[in-house]
């Protein structure tokens, strides 16, 4: 227990500053997380289609961190796309946004987000938030495991 298992994370975020903060907070030297970043909903779908085809550059993520407000396909539209996909709907999606609107919170959970995290304003806050998020998803939660054909086959790594 309490062992940190490195994870593949897909960050869907258009803001370069927030991309950098998330990377610093999630990929410190303590952990071997692989963070892949795309800057739009459309790019996220492209990435995940490649994951399904088992392209090595796009490993199937254990967790998706999703911004809500992006040009083009926003976070909520992307969540809707996941609903009907038997493989993509296995991946927990956590909203990471500046919005604190009650409506955004409610709609995100109605679309089955697995958490709604407001972006902290500074790096220390960001680090703490990402630590708490990582402790939950990558230390105490079991994960779906994917085989080389990207078909979900098993439980969290030992």
């Amino acid at each position: 227990m309490d062992r940190y298992k490195a994870a593949v994370i897909l960050l869907v975020e258009d803001d370069i500053g927030d991309q950098k903060l998330t990377k610093q907070a999630l990929c410190g030297d303590r952990v071997g997380n692989e963070l892949n970043i795309v800057n739009s909903g459309e790019k996220a779908l492209e990435y995940l289609e490649k994951s399904k085809r088992n392209e090595p550059s796009c490993p199937m993520p254990d967790l998706i961190l999703l911004d809500l407000n992006m040009p083009g396909m926003g976070g909520k539209s992307l969540l809707k796309q996941f609903r009907d996909d038997p493989l993509l709907n296995l991946i927990p999606v956590v909203i990471l946004t500046t919005s604190d609107s009650d409506r955004d919170v409610l709609e995100s959970f109605q679309l089955q987000a697995a958490g709604y995290v407001q972006k902290p304003a500074n790096l220390d806050g960001f680090r703490q938030t990402m630590k708490d998020l990582s402790d939950y998803w990558f230390v105490i939660c079991k994960r779906v495991e994917y085989d080389h054909d990207s078909v979900a086959v098993g439980a969290g790594a030992s």
């Binding site: 227990m1 309490d2 956590v94 604190d100 009650d102 919170v105 409610l106 959970f109 958490g115 709604y116 995290v117 407001q118 938030t129 708490d132 998020l133 402790d135 939950y136 998803w137 230390v139 105490i140």
Partner: peptide
């Protein structure tokens, strides 16, 4: 207790929940 501590921090300190 340690597991629940992480769970509580994630759901009630890090995530916003529906009112």
């Amino acid at each position: 207790r340690r597991v629940v501590q992480k769970l509580v921090r994630y759901w009630f300190a890090t995530s916003t929940l529906v009112k």
